[in-house]
């Protein structure tokens, strides 16, 4: 979900701009949570049981951490590649 942010502050009053920025940030976090839950569910969940067992839970939290590490590592790698060009 994305929407254009107003660039000229005289078009939209300050309070509205603050509100839109805060809502956009919240929406981005929500979006990221949907994506991460999707990825880590696929990695960690076997058959759904009557409880989330400890093993699955720690798999999920490791999955989140390593996914973010991966994103970071790819960012570094891309920067290196970009410099080589």
């Amino acid at each position: 979900m994305s929407f254009d942010m107003p660039t000229k502050s005289n078009n939209v009053d300050h309070e509205m701009q603050q509100f839109l920025m805060a809502e956009q940030q919240k929406a981005q976090i929500q979006q990221q949570l949907h994506a991460l839950t999707d990825v880590c569910w696929e990695k960690c969940m076997d058959k759904p049981r009557d409880k989330l067992d400890y093993r699955t839970e720690s798999c999920i939290s490791n999955c989140v951490e390593r996914f973010m590490d991966t994103t970071k590592a790819i960012g570094v790698r891309l920067q290196q590649k970009y410099k080589e060009m």
């Binding site: 976090i29 990221q32 949570l33 989330l52 939290s61």
Partner: peptide
């Protein structure tokens, strides 16, 4: 939903 909560906490 449990998984969502674990992800949310870690994130």
């Amino acid at each position: 939903l449990d998984s969502w909560n674990v992800v949310s906490k870690s994130y």
